[in-house]
């Protein structure tokens, strides 16, 4: 559902909007790397657990 127009309620200030967009772009990149790193680590941990379970079975 579309949100009502909040921009009309207060003046967000073009300069401050621009600043937030710039900061948001940098933070967005940081978020991407953090999320990707977390996923990779999660994947490696899961695989690590699978490998140790298999080697336990073999023994």
């Amino acid at each position: 559902m579309d949100q009502p127009s909040v921009l009309l309620y207060i003046d967000p200030g073009v300069g401050f909007l621009a600043l937030q967009i710039l900061a948001g772009s940098v933070l967005g990149i940081s978020f991407f790397f953090r999320r990707t790193t977390a996923r990779v680590l999660k994947f490696l941990r899961i695989n690590g657990r699978k490998d140790s379970k298999e080697s336990d079975k073999v023994e």
């Binding site: 949100q3 127009s5 909040v6 200030g13 073009v14 300069g15 401050f16 909007l17 621009a18 600043l19």
Partner: peptide, 18 residues
């Protein structure tokens, strides 16, 4: 913010429906 105040902010940010 003062220097950026004249920057053309993208249409989707200032459009009425976010």
């Amino acid at each position: 913010p003062h220097l950026l105040r004249r920057w053309e902010v993208k249409q989707e940010t200032t459009s009425k429906k976010r």
